[in-house]
């Protein structure tokens, strides 16, 4: 593996953000499941502890999100997220075909990663919706639940808190699904561990793509 095939993909601030975020989200999902399905007969952890951890890590992940948001404004990292709508469906189709058949025939990836392209179109759409829709949605509803006086009392005779809580847990569910797929897709590469190493040391080996 020559050093030229390695590019510095993940700057240090991004890796710190990603590390905190990964830990935080895992704890949030675990404690969240615990609260949602609270049942002392099948107890993963103490209820009060789950509540406190969920609140603390919720706040931590929210503050951390600011790092991601501001980091992307200030650095060039934002360019990877730019999504051209024109021809998007076509590009997505190509990527899907690659994932479902091309890669098994050892074909070339349609959108090989380079200094200019960190994400393939599918990743782009997924990351954009998770990072700019789901996670902010979770932060908003989560903070609202921490400060329930800010929530509108009634929305067409529904309790506002009720709706907020449903939204919060639904988004949480979607992020959990995302996480599972994210971890799996990350294992696709020359070596299943490659991508996990990259997000720690920052370097990505593009020779495999």
């Amino acid at each position: 593996m020559s050093s030229e095939s390695k590019i510095y993909f993940y700057p240090i601030w991004l890796r710190i953000w990603h590390g905190i975020n990964a830990l935080g989200i895992l704890i949030l999902i675990f404690t969240g499941i615990n609260m949602q399905y609270s049942n002392p007969n099948f107890k993963l952890m103490d209820f009060e502890l789950a509540v406190n951890l969920h609140n603390i890590f919720g706040i931590l992940v929210s503050v951390n999100y600011l790092l991601f948001f501001i980091g992307n404004i200030l650095t060039t990292n934002k360019k990877y997220y730019r999504l051209k709508l024109k021809g998007l469906t076509k590009r997505l189709k190509l990527q899907v075909i690659y994932y479902t058949s091309g890669m098994f025939k050892h074909q070339q990836a349609p959108f090989p990663l380079s200094e200019k392209r960190k994400f393939n179109p599918m990743q782009k759409v997924a990351y954009l919706s998770v990072m700019y829709l789901f996670v902010p949605g979770l932060i908003f509803t989560g903070l609202a639940l921490l400060f329930p006086e800010t929530i509108i009392e009634e929305v067409y005779s529904f309790s506002g808190i009720f709706l907020t809580a449903v939204l919060h847990s639904s988004l949480g569910f979607l992020v959990s699904i995302f996480l599972i797929v994210h971890l799996y897709v990350a294992s696709i590469g020359k070596n299943p561990a490659d991508n996990f190493k990259s997000i720690v040391n920052g370097y990505h080996d593009i020779s495999g793509h």
Binding site: Q36, L146, I161, F162
Partner: peptide, 22 residues
């Protein structure tokens, strides 16, 4: 009290249909 806030509505808002969908 913010940390110990209990505003999590316990229990999924369980509707069998949506539960199954998820």
């Amino acid at each position: 009290t913010i940390i110990a806030n209990k505003s999590y509505v316990i229990g999924a808002y369980q509707n069998p249909l949506l539960n199954n969908i998820s």
